[in-house]
């Protein structure tokens, strides 16, 4: 059974997902669609027919977005910054987490418990580049799959996770893991017999922590601004 209201809501949701238009913009387009549907129904079309004709007349999502990009360039650049920063933070997370786990294994001597010896690290705490590369390749594969046209067909499954609440969580997560990493890198050389710890040091971990916190904070602020603009509305 064709539900006109539901169809319009779903169409509105599709436009909002792209975040190139504000709620107000989408409401205005929806009001136009409703006017067209009324007129077509008066002319004798069914609700379903009227909806599809009105939808066709309005133009597809891409062409509507393309026009709104021209009038909202700042909005578009903000969106690009948000995606770029999110991607950078996501990829940076791999070495941070790997370092965190390796630090934990080293600190609590889990390696000795599991493998009865220095199986993983030998005599030195080395940066595990092969692990980084494998983890980054897996992450790239996942992202390519989720963002490819074939798998999602414009559904953009990652978009809902790009909001200021998640950014706040990321900020907190980076803070905690980053501080632990700095702690490990300060403590490890002092409490273990290892004098060299590869190119991992407390100062480099601290610098990485500050840099990522700064980026995560910028992302949080941008998403907050974006949300306010997005929801800016004069109606209702």
């Amino acid at each position: 059974m064709f539900d006109l209201k539901e169809q319009i809501e779903s169409w509105k949701h599709g436009l909002l997902v792209d975040k190139l238009m504000s709620v107000e913009d989408v409401e205005e387009l929806a009001s136009h669609i409703e006017c067209t549907i009324d007129e077509l129904q008066e002319a004798g079309l069914s609700a379903e027919e009227a909806f599809y004709v009105a939808f066709h007349r309005m133009g597809d999502r891409r062409s509507i977005n393309a026009e709104y990009i021209k009038v909202n360039p700042v909005h578009v650049w903000r969106k690009r910054f948000i995606w770029l920063t999110s991607g950078y933070l996501l990829f940076s997370l791999v070495p941070i987490i790997v370092k965190f786990f390796i630090g934990t294994i080293y600190l609590f001597d889990i390696e000795a418990l599991l493998f009865q010896g220095n199986f993983l690290f030998g005599e030195e705490f080395q940066t595990p580049y092969p692990v980084y590369v494998v983890a980054l390749l897996i992450l790239t594969g996942i992202l390519v799959y989720f963002t490819s046209e074939k798998s999602v067909i414009n559904k953009k499954p990652l978009q809902p996770y790009l909001n200021y609440r998640v950014a706040a969580f990321v900020l907190l997560g980076y803070g905690v893991i980053g501080l632990l990493n700095v702690g490990y890198m300060t403590i490890l050389p002092r409490i273990t017999s290892v004098s060299t710890i590869g190119n991992v040091s407390a100062s480099s971990s601290f610098f990485v922590l500050v840099w990522h916190l700064f980026l995560a904070l910028s992302l949080f602020v941008m998403l907050l601004i974006s949300r306010r603009r997005h929801n800016r509305t004069q109606f209702g």
Partner: peptide, 23 residues
Amino acid sequence: WKEGMIYPLLRKLENEELIESFW
């Protein structure tokens, strides 16, 4: 006109303060 195209134009005119809008 393609129906969806008038709204970005109206927005543009509004940004240029040639027109104003209200609900």
